[in-house]
Amino acid sequence: MPEFEPRIVAFLCRWCAAAGADLAGTSRLQYPPNAIPIRVNCSGRVEPQWVVEALKAGADGVLIGGCHPGDCHYVVGNYKTRRRIYLLRRMLAEMGIEPERVRLEWISATEGARFAQVVSDFVAELKRLGPLHGNGGRG
């Protein structure tokens, strides 16, 4: 049986996290290809519902990437995200889903290496956790 390859949906804010991901590319840093990026203007746009739907649709983990606290292009969007994701993770735990499957990370436009590291770490963690039950049975 081939090694389990987790599927990740990555919601990345345009100004910091997506720019950081671009820098990882410009710097030719290699990292696992498991995360499919979806660019949004601000991490504040990310609805908890999207995260839940992504997990339902077959994702083993969801990454939300935003600007560092104080650096949000839209002043405070990332603070709202932080509260929402904090709450969502607690709700997931109540439902028996490991909260570690939802990751909120602050990645600046200059942190290409950090983006690559975050994805690598997340993939490793999801491999340890295994497929999200209900999504199991696929390679």
Binding site: N41, R45, E47, W50, G77, K80, R84
Partner: peptide, 24 residues
């Protein structure tokens, strides 16, 4: 930024060309 859209409990607030259905 769309922060208001994510907060709207009744789905009345939407974001042009980044709609919920679109993202899903």
């Amino acid at each position: 930024c769309g922060t208001c859209v994510a907060a709207c409990p009744s789905g009345a607030m939407s974001f042009r060309n980044v709609g919920d259905e679109q993202v899903l």
